[in-house]
Each structure stands twice: as C-alpha cells, then as structure tokens.
Write a protein that binds this DNA or RNA. Structure first.
Lengths: 161, 161
DNA sequence: CCTAACCTTTAAGTTAAGTTTAAGGTCAAG
DNA sequence: CTTGACCTTAAACTTAACTTAAAGGTTAGG
C-alpha cells in the first residue's frame, strides 16, 4: 500500500503520517525501487491506535514510549501503569474543571444579583474583590495535565470594536 | 510603583508583565523621565484579574476583548455571555473527559482480565480490536475547547532504554 | 569611580503536533 | 511527449503564552 492509500484508509493526511514516522512512532517502512514507501496492512491498525490514544489524552511522546516495536508485544506493566496514570490525570482535571465551573456560575449569579440602585462601578469593585478573594480558597491543584481539546470554537474570535 | 515592585506583588515575572502590555491587556503606562514604567496601585488588581481569568480557562484573547479600558466600566452583556459560554465549554469538556476515563477504565479491566492460558499476542489483538471498535461508538464530541492545564508532570518524561 | 541592582528594547527561542511550501522525481494515460 | 496524479525531501511556518538572550541605559551605595 502506498501512502495515499493509507491516508485514505485512516483518514489522516500524508504529511501527518510522514511526521509520525519521522517522530519515531512508526517504524521505518520498506521502499519501492523508486523510493515510494510501501505500507503493510498492519499500518492502518497502528495509525488508528495512535489516533485513538491521542483522543484519550496521550501525547505522542507517551504513545511512543508505550508503543512496542512489534504490535503483538505489548509491555504489560508499563502499559497498565500508564493507563492508570492517565485515569488519575483525568480525574484530577475533572476536579479542577468542576471547581472552575462552580466559580464561574457563582460569579454569574453574583453579577446578576446586582441591586438596581448600586452604581456599576461599585458593583464592579464588589465583584472584583469577591473574585480575587475566592480564588485564594481554591486548593492550588497543580495536577498533571491532560490534553483533550477539540479544534472547534476557533471561529469564535475576531469580533470587537 | 516600578515593574519590579509590581512583579513582586503579583508574583508574575517582569517579562510577563511587559508581554501583557505589548499584547494589549494592560494599557500603556506612564514613564519616568528615564523611561522606567510607573504603575498605579490598580495594576495589581488588573494583573490578578488576568491571572484568575486564565485559571478559569480564558485565553488572553478572550480576556482582552472582555477587559474594559477602565476597570470600573465592565460591559455587562458581553461579560455575562462570555461567562456562560465558558461554563458551557467546561461542561462539554467534562463530558468528553468522563467518556475517555470510562474507556480507559474499561480497557484496563479488559487487559487485566486476560485469561492465563491465552498468548500475549492473541490477547493484544483481542484488546486492540476492542479498543478500535469502542472508539467508533463515542459520539465524536467536537466541543469547544477549554484550556485548564497545570504545568506539572513535565518531570514525568525522559526515561526509557 | 565602580559595582550591583534596577530598568529598557528588540529579537529570537520554546513546546506540541502538525501543515505548508518549494523544488523536484515517477508513472500511467492519451 | 505532455499532462496530471502520485510520490519524495528539507525547511519553514503555525498558535499560545511566554521566556531568554543580547546589548545597553540608570542609579544608589560604598
């Protein structure tokens, strides 16, 4: 299989596949006499696996150290350990997110509860000090990081007077 | 107040403060005859506010459009709208995280449930296909993104044979 | 007067995960 | 024999939020 075919089957771009190879995630493949890469059918599996692991929050770096040279030779211990760590990372992030969300919700309520007779400036100062105070309570999480971000909401910028 | 003093009071670096100014988050400040910046006491508040907003998941871009030229002149509508959007973003991310975590937990169980008499290679294929199958079920979230990452766990790399 | 602690600017470097560009070789079809 | 689809490489660009470096001006203290 040529790279174009592999790209079609995995839904990845040519450049991304080559990038993975240069990054050491794919072992160097055979070449035709003309230099074209020849991929075995297995390559589809490996790429799908990489994509899946990424969606689950693994960095390419993590994936590289976990991915065995041979697909059928996983290193049990390290793999399970990594999976557990990732679950813990996600849990920590969930805690942080919940806290942030709660803070934002409280802030919204606070702003909307502004009594009509208070001047905007005064209300601002009231809220300001509450915000900056509130953050001090939060337990300075500093958890490990997990990246699980979509690429949407990029459209949502560029609009201001 | 000179920049050094402001840095000390906010816990930010000099370079970061200057960066915020050049990025349009801080209005240009007065200078002494020798060129040194002079910050008003209010600057501490503004910087704390920026840092807090960042921790809550706002990008500098978002903060810039929300931050009023004058601290006491918030734009109510836009602010509340942005806060609500951010809450929604976080909620969406929480859903994604929960899914990923569940998948990982299931995967761990799957791996550990390997019957002793099955060869590693066969088990690997079994799990592989389950993993790649499972991901298809997941509803392709594509939510807006939120960034709330700690800087820890950087130490946790660089160690492989 | 010299040194150390401040401050200034501009430009380049960092990280992750790719994409884009430039410049070209290969190959099947018409 | 040329057009278009496909492949190759290396290098530069992208984004965000900074940091680091290089090169230098200012000022208080001893």
């Amino acid at each position: 299989m040529n790279i174009g075919e592999l790209a079609k089957r995995t839904g990845l771009t040519h450049s991304r596949i080559r990038f993975y190879e240069s990054a050491g995630l794919l072992k160097t493949v055979e070449r035709r006499p003309n230099g074209y890469r020849i991929y075995p059918a297995e390559a589809v599996l490996v790429l799908d696996l990489i994509a899946t692991a990424q969606k689950a929050g693994f960095s390419l770096d993590e994936i590289r150290t976990l991915l065995p040279p041979d697909l059928a030779q996983w290193q049990h211990g390290a793999l399970i350990e990594a999976l557990r760590r990732k679950v813990a990372d996600i849990a920590a992030l969930e805690v942080r997110l919940a806290q942030s969300k709660a803070q934002l919700v409280a802030l919204i309520a606070d702003i909307e509860a502004k009594p009509e007779d208070v001047a905007c400036a005064d209300n601002a100062r009231r809220i300001l000090s509450r915000m900056l105070g509130k953050e001090m309570e939060s337990p300075t999480m500093e958890a490990g990081d997990v990246k699980l971000l979509g690429k949407a909401s990029r459209r949502r910028s560029a609009r201001a007077s």
